[in-house]
């Protein structure tokens, strides 16, 4: 990209800092207000897991109880299952979604504008479907008597499983649903990055006789790398959080599927709304945040060691 002559833009480095610019500060105030109010002030609530929470007394005046809430959670037999499901499925989601999205973006980049538009529309449709509606779609496909897939299996003379009672199918169902919903969006982010690439690079490579495959490998992929790393690290930071809507709605809260589909978020939600256990659910919340954050720090450190430029901070 050295060939590109850059006009100075807002983000250019080395611009001299002015004294406090009150006009800009004024513009930032509304955003700052909601950012602090919704994301930062609740951080005080991180002491809740160490308290014997009494709603009447409020957060700060409730009595301390040490690590009791954590003990309770880590001793329950479910902790291993929900942690394994959450991390295991998220790792699969991250790897598969990133791979498929990058491949789709590279494919789009080689296509004509007209085709791109058509495919982009199709891939994007599921992104705008909520998990509630998606759960009806999955139900239409899988329901034991009326579902599309059981009907096909029946016509083929195969035995028809009741998908809502068979945990073994759900890892695949969840992965397919996740890809279905997210590939369009992620692919477009990568595609938008590729479009921003300087075409002179490709022309030069073509003159030097590089094949399409070589150009993808040596020009496109390195160009995408920083964004892939960014998306990857952000997803790793959320590895302890599951997409609640998906896990809550798709399996239709079927108890027999819990061994495969129950994740930390659905577990916390049941704790809180069904059993009203504030202490324990907040302990799990802190566990999610803290471990996720540590994972991001570690990933960033590894990335930084391999290539300084790709690190997030």
């Amino acid at each position: 990209m050295a060939s590109k002559i850059k006009k100075p833009v807002l983000a250019s480095k080395g611009r001299k800092k002015n004294r406090m610019n009150w006009g800009l500060f004024l513009l930032a105030i509304p955003g700052l207000f909601f950012l602090v109010g919704y994301y930062y002030i609740p951080l005080f609530g991180l002491i809740i897991p160490f308290k014997k929470m009494d709603v009447a007394k409020g957060i700060f005046r409730s009595d301390w109880c040490g690590f009791d809430n954590f003990k309770f959670f880590f001793q329950s037999p479910d902790v291993w299952t929900v942690t394994r499901n959450t991390i295991g499925l998220n790792v699969l989601f991250i790897v598969i979604t990133l791979t498929v999205s990058v491949l789709v973006a590279l494919g789009l980049y080689e296509m004509s504008k007209k085709k791109v538009k058509l495919f982009q529309t199709c891939f994007f449709v599921p992104y705008f479907i909520s998990w509630v509606v998606a759960s009806y779609i999955v139900y239409a496909l899988l329901s034991p008597d009326l579902g599309v897939i059981p009907n096909i299996l029946e016509k083929l003379g195969m035995s028809v499983p009741n998908f809502y009672n068979e945990p073994k199918y759900w890892t695949a169902i969840l992965i397919l649903s996740y890809i279905w919903k997210h590939v369009g969006y992620n692919a477009l982010i990568f595609y938008a990055t590729l479009v921003g690439m300087d075409s002179a690079l490709h022309e030069a490579a073509a003159i030097d006789g590089a094949s399409k495959f070589q150009r993808i490998k040596y020009i496109c992929l390195p160009y995408l790398m920083p964004i892939i790393v960014l998306m990857g690290v952000l997803m790793i930071g959320k590895i302890f959080y599951a997409d609640f809507g998906m896990f809550y709605f798709l399996p239709r809260n079927s108890g027999t599927l819990y061994p495969v589909t129950d994740v930390i978020d659905t577990y916390v939600f049941r704790m809180l709304r069904v059993m009203g256990n504030i202490g324990m659910s907040s302990a799990v919340g802190l566990y999610q945040s803290a471990v996720g954050f540590i994972l991001v720090l570690i990933t960033n450190m590894i990335v930084k060691k391999r290539n300084e430029d790709y690190a997030l901070f």
Binding site: L35, Y38, Y39, Y40, I41, P42, L43, F44, G45, L46, I48, I59, L234, G237, D265, V268, F269, L272, I278, S281, S282, G285, L286, Q288, S289, G292, F293, V296
Partner: peptide
């Protein structure tokens, strides 16, 4: 705020 947050319960209580 993308990497670290209070989680469901503190936000709910706030």
């Amino acid at each position: 705020s993308m990497l670290f947050n209070g989680g469901l319960v503190p936000t709910y209580i706030m």
